[in-house]
Design a protein around this nucleic acid. Structure first.
Lengths: 340, 340
DNA sequence: AAAAGTTACGAAATCGGTTTCGTGTTGACA
DNA sequence: TGTCAACACGAAACCGATTTCGTAACTTTT
């Protein structure tokens, strides 16, 4: 890289001190008009830009927010990033995005590096591996160092920090209830393993809706997907249990279910209703388009960053962690029967 | 934030100098075993972590790569980010992601801030507005400051830097030729306005394929979409021109075209073949699934970051800009007829 | 004409590290 | 006993800014 113009360069070249240059560029009243003009002219000519690192070190703040997500090629998470970035930008902050790839090690590593003064605060959605192993020491360390932290979507109760979550329980309840309301009797759920708490909550909502109608929970209708195996083959068996509806906890599972139904020439929604989760492009562009729970990733990102910046900029105030619950809506499309 | 433990704290507390602490923590031979152990123990106890900003300032490098993309909620771009992040991570770099939202102003602003010492180099995909206005001064400034820069996908010839592009011309040609080879005669193209050079290149490829077959270009079959208007309504008129194939330059346009065909009860692929671009989830999960050009965003991201880091770490070498062309494949699916 | 106040600038500390260059204390060797 | 190297550590410069405080040279007031 070319030798950068610094305040020192200007000072030496113009025969003044660095303090004078600094003050002149900030249009301080301490400096005479002529000196200011001379310095400003030189700075413009050589395209002087103050070094960010130096300023950050001096001011002890970076105006930077660290974001750690499990993945990026995913409609929900990329929407969250968009929300965070928009909110941050509005307040004059920038974001540093890292990915854990669902790996605990990578999450810890990212957390360590970012918390070394690189950022003013962090927004994290916890990796599945971390959730599965229940290893949260890295977060506890962060909290005890009093580094502002907001957990997003995938959260853990005993970490003392602000949280932004979807009302997964309510959403699961809403989705299942809609299926029951439109005449379905035997509703299967395609969900995640138990350690993914969002999956669990959605399932609990599903169970509540069933029990309200005095429908017994049928274990055969509950499929926990192992993402390392072929998803379609794991779903297929549930079709043997005389079902008339499927509640899938994400849109991929929903799309795969619809594929199987089509192969079996089962008509949707007449013979089988399907509801997904995450209002992504698949749900919108699939045929039939999929009724789904819209998660409002944009809103979640914005709320998270708002809470974080609030915490960063009001250090002095006594702090008590809040949890923001974002309610989700059922977006009705073609894969379910019209409500009566 | 809690008062951080710095080298100074340790030095004062243990009655030694900061130099001693620094050396001890780096296991320097200059320091006696006992002193080292004492300092190390204290550092561990109080969870000392060296301040990144200070290091970056001293070393004059940040191990950070700035990434500016037009948008994020988009399969191609999020895949690119993934590729960049993976490549960067492998070499010990982190990424700072910003978005221009296709706006020139935001692009300039992001570029300015990131080039103030915050990052060692930049990867940029140019905003549409910038391309439309042909305003590239901010890039020229960057180049003349010799800040390592790699342009990705959306590039401009007269910026002197490394570039990574898709073979859009070849891809357009390939896609169109496939349609012709499978018996289509009247192929429409749904493309972007002329200033988006990737769209233009794809269109040129389309035209070449037609001319090779001595098929005259029919202006009625070329639709330039204005994204500010209703896309579907802009596509609809082309169906009145007796077409038997559509080449859409992205998957949204392809999906919308298929929707219209379905509404008109046109059978796909028997009566109408459709080819998309960008191998995203829509193409995969739509019914029929869409034959498409796979852009290899992951590869592009990796290549870009490799070129960039190479440039960063070999400053001394004389530098001549390279352009890496990533070839794209046609992924055959259900929306086109089987090749004979 | 002496005292006080302005004006315009510079020296030095600071942020948190690293690194070069001394230097005082040992012990070994001639 | 004098010389020299090795050892263990500290002082100070440096990265690039900001900011407090001090002060020389004038100007104004009394």
């Amino acid at each position: 890289m070319k030798q950068k113009v610094t305040i020192k360069t200007i000072a030496k070249e113009l025969g003044v001190s660095t303090s004078t240059v600094s003050k002149a560029l900030k249009d301080s009243h301490e400096i005479s008009k002529e000196t200011k003009e001379k310095i400003q002219a030189y700075a413009d000519l050589y395209n002087y830009k103050p070094n960010n690192l130096a300023l950050q070190l001096r001011n002890q703040k970076t105006k930077l927010i660290g974001v750690i997500l499990p993945k990026i090629v995913h409609h929900f998470f990329s929407t969250i990033i968009k929300g965070i970035e928009e909110g941050a930008h509005k307040k004059g902050y920038r974001i540093m995005v890292c990915f854990s790839d669902e790996s605990h090690t990578k999450e810890v590593e990212n957390l360590k590096v970012l918390s070394n003064g690189s950022v003013d605060g962090l927004i994290v959605s916890i990796a599945n591996e971390t959730l599965a192993n229940k290893e949260f020491k890295h977060f506890q360390d962060l909290v005890s160092e009093e580094i502002p932290l907001v957990l997003l979507d995938r959260v853990v109760d005993d970490i003392k920090c602000d949280k932004v979550v979807v009302d997964d329980f309510g959403a699961g309840y809403k989705a299942t209830k809609h299926l029951l309301n439109t005449g379905c009797k035997r509703v299967a759920i395609i969900t995640t393993p138990e350690y993914v708490n969002v999956g669990t909550l959605r399932r609990k909502g599903y169970e509540k809706a069933l029990l309200e109608r005095k429908i017994a929970i049928d274990k055969n209708l509950i499929i926990e997907i192992d993402e390392n195996e072929n998803i379609k083959e794991q779903i297929r068996p549930v079709f043997d249990h005389n079902i008339d509806a499927i509640f899938a906890v994400n849109e991929i599972y929903a799309a795969k279910s619809i594929r199987i139904a089509k192969e079996k020439s089962i008509r949707i929604p007449e013979e089988l209703s399907v509801t997904g989760f995450t209002d992504g492009l698949i749900s919108e562009y699939s045929t039939p388009s999929i009724t789904t729970i819209a998660q409002h990733g944009l809103t979640m990102g914005k709320q998270a960053v708002e809470a974080l910046i609030n915490r960063i900029e009001n250090e002095s105030e006594k702090y008590s962690p809040k949890t923001i619950v974002i309610s989700s809506d059922l977006k009705l499309r073609e894969s379910t029967k019209p409500s009566s």
